[in-house]
Design a protein around this nucleic acid. Structure first.
Length: 684
RNA sequence: GCGCCUGUAGCUCAGCUGGAUAGAGCAGCGGUCUUCUAAACCGCAGGUCAUUGGUUCGAAUCCAAUCAGGCGUACCA
């Protein structure tokens, strides 16, 4: 973002008290707040005479991966050497000769083929730490050009319980919102709930035919969920029953084909082998389908009540779809039921969001956009983008085989239409500059088509990104389900996490000579640790990766977990408690940090790079960049804690310095975790 | 068939636009609590980055092929 800019003033050190106001009078790109940016600015000056395009070269300045190479390294001499046709070490020497970093670094060293290694001067680190000690934002400057970013995440279907897939979207989306806001962008979080889809027809049908009034009165959402599941099961039953004979015929045919192919395949012929394999795969797939169909039939057959219901409702799927159509067509009775169901469903969702501490600025579901859909389609037609194909209205986008269907043969609109209407609304009404969709990566093609269509439609300045994430897998390597094949409910997941955390909290406190936590404290700590554990387990993976869901790992309290950071935070609080010192009264504004050993230096260096963690999260919407920074930070604190006593510091000055470092680290951990919506406690 | 993605330590995963001897956590082994919380710290061991070729000063990273697996592919969202 800020790369390649030249500083309009150079770094010097303002008195800490004047720091914030001083700083605020300059634009963030001019003022090299981050170390990295400062170094880049210095290098820009040195490289200017050597190259026309310094931006890519500046990108090659980064933290050293091994401390023995110093703190930072510049790898730009090698590619530059090629450009100018001279030996890389000579070019490195030229760069160093032109480089003025003597106030920041020790003398730069050339190593290997032409790496330039930089070691920061302790005095400079101290200066920086001292200045951020008095800064609430820990040295993170608000962005220069704030954008209005709409983050579309969570997006569950109402009346269906949320599961671990929604957890990923919710947790990642929320972290992105918080981080963007902290960085100074305008953010609108929007929960684009599925409140208008086919499941409502199923629920309406279920309600009309199978409702248990007492259960509905007691817990409407649970009853609606049961009805949804029931109608789904009965529909599946009939579909399976109908499909099964055909499947068996297909299986026989495929087996015959396979046998024929096998008999005439030459094992040396790779192409034939491949063909054979694809036949085998077809057989396997059909076998799976048959197995799944048979299971569905068996599940109903095993329960005489279910069997009776199934027999009594042979056309349940069609009838449920008809209820959806009626709803969409404005049927008064169905609309009335919808109006009745929705608030309870929303409330149930809200309960989960409250527990997860996730807030939405708006919850505009699919139903909200319903009145706009017809206009979207006619607009697309007017612009010649949408055409009729096999009775459906489609947008064909160059380079994509599959069409973007905006209206089905039966006249119904699709979620593609809704998504387009939503974009129009967000741009025209909400004035969005950018929209992020935190959605499962399996929908990549849909978003690809959506964004292309959108551009053709005329939204050229809008930036859209599918912030995709991988699937949560079970131990079997398949998407995570319970043994009975259901999704894992989010509420029970949260309950389990808290219960497990509680066991650890109890054990830990009971081990103390005199336990310090009341039952109430223990409960709230268990909530903080348990829910933090769930979130962290998800966030610390690269969002694009599928990952294996594992209770023990998710709720582990050792290693790279939320607890590790929370524990570090609590230990810092413990220091201040033990010494009976108010954290707000240690003179951060006039801090004078001393670096007397490697642990203190590493800690300080980590702290002054907090802003780099923020920008790297934002650059590609990857919250795991923040978990990584936090884990490093907590690790450096733990090493410091083991090695550098605050209480028994040799001098009052050293003690004061360490208190400042501790306070800064506590604030950094708390702030970093808060950007992931993970809470902290003073005592664990 | 077409398209997209993945393959890194025993396990679960990091590894940013190519950078030096590929990193964590867990599990394993060995140390560290009379001194600010041992939910911790320090150390040891563990890898042919699926395979083969290519690009270049330099490849886990880029390209090609192969093998293995996953996902998506016209009226579900």
């Amino acid at each position: 973002m800020l790369q390649g800019r030249l500083p309009c003033i150079d770094w010097f050190s303002p008195p800490p008290s004047a720091f914030t106001s001083f700083y605020a009078s300059f634009c963030s790109s001019c003022f090299p707040m981050s170390i990295l940016q400062t170094l880049k600015n210095r290098f820009a000056t040195a490289l200017q005479p050597l190259s026309d395009d310094v931006a890519p070269l500046l990108d090659m300045i980064r933290s050293s991966q091994d401390p023995k190479f110093g703190d930072f390294q510049a790898n730009c001499a090698m590619p530059l050497a090629k450009q100018v046709g001279r030996p890389p070490r000579d070019v490195a020497a030229d760069i160093i000769a032109a480089l003025d970093v003597s106030d920041i670094c020790e003398a730069p060293e050339i190593a290997g083929p032409g790496f330039i290694n930089l070691k920061l001067k302790d005095a400079w680190i101290v200066e920086r730490v001292n200045s951020i000690a008095g800064d609430d934002r820990l040295g993170v400057m608000p962005v220069e050009n704030p954008r209005h970013v709409i983050v579309d995440f969570s997006s569950p279907n109402v009346a269906k319980p949320m599961h671990v897939g929604h957890l990923r979207s919710s947790v990642i989306g929320d972290a992105i919102c918080r981080t963007l806001r902290f960085a100074g962008h305008k953010v609108t979080s929007d929960n684009h709930i599925g409140d208008w889809g086919t499941q409502f027809g199923m629920i309406i049908y279920g309600y009309r035919n199978f409702v248990d009034s007492a259960a509905y009165a007691a817990d409407p959402v649970a009853e609606l969920a049961r009805l949804y599941k029931l109608v789904n099961q009965l529909s599946d039953y009939h579909a399976a029953k109908q499909k099964l004979p055909q499947l068996k015929i297909s299986l026989q045919l495929q087996k015959d084909e396979l046998a024929a192919e096998q008999s005439e395949t030459d094992p040396a012929d790779k192409k034939a082998k491949k063909k054979l394999k694809s036949f085998q795969k077809a057989v396997d797939t059909t076998l799976d389908s048959i197995k799944s169909a048979e299971e569905k039939l068996a599940a109903v057959a095993a329960d005489s009540n279910l069997q009776q219901l199934a027999d009594a409702h042979p056309n349940i799927a069609r009838l449920a779809r008809a209820e959806t159509s009626k709803l969409h067509a404005g049927d008064v009775d169905n609309q009335k039921l919808w109006d009745e169901f929705l608030p309870a469903c929303l409330q149930a969702l809200q309960r989960v969001y409250d527990r997860l501490d996730i807030q939405f600025d708006m919850t505009l579901g699919e139903s909200y956009y319903n009145p706009m859909l017809a206009d979207v389609v006619s607009s697309l037609k007017d612009k010649g983008l949408a055409t009729d194909s096999d009775g459906a209205t489609c947008v064909f986008v160059e380079g994509n085989e599959a069409p973007f269907i905006v209206q089905k043969t039966d006249g119904a609109f699709t979620y593609a239409t809704t998504d387009l209407a939503t974009i129009q609304y967000r741009v025209e009404q909400l004035k969005a500059d950018e929209i992020l969709y935190v959605v499962d990566k399996r929908q990549a093609e849909h978003f690809n088509l959506l964004f292309k269509t959108c551009e053709l439609w005329g939204f050229k300045d809008l930036k859209c990104q599918h912030v995709s994430f991988g699937t949560v897998m079970g131990k079997d390597g398949k998407p995570y389900k319970t043994r009975s094949g259901d999704n894992i409910g989010l509420e029970s997941l949260i309950d389990e996490a808290i219960a497990r955390a509680r066991t650890v909290v109890d054990e830990n406190d009971d081990r103390r000579e005199t336990p310090v936590l009341s039952a109430e404290d223990r409960h709230s700590v268990a909530e903080i640790v348990g829910i933090g554990g769930i979130k962290y387990a998800d966030l610390h993976h690269n969002r694009e990766s599928d990952y294996e869901f594992d209770w023990d790992k998710m709720l582990a309290t050792t290693g790279d977990t939320a607890t590790y950071m929370q524990y570090a935070y609590a230990r810092i609080c413990g220091i201040f408690r033990e010494l009976n010192i108010d954290r707000n009264a240690i003179g951060q504004a006039t801090a004078n940090v001393l670096l007397t050993g490697p642990e203190e230096r590493a800690l300080a260096l980590q702290l002054i790079q907090f802003d780099e963690a923020i920008s790297s999260v934002i650059s590609d919407y990857r919250p795991n960049q923040m978990t990584g920074w936090l884990f490093d930070a907590a690790g450096k604190f733990s090493a410091f804690y083991a090695q550098c006593s605050v209480k028994n510091a040799e001098t009052p000055e050293l003690k004061a310095s360490r208190l400042v470092l501790c306070d800064l680290m506590a604030r950094a951990i708390k702030t970093g975790l808060s950007l992931l919506a993970i809470d902290t406690a003073e005592v664990l």
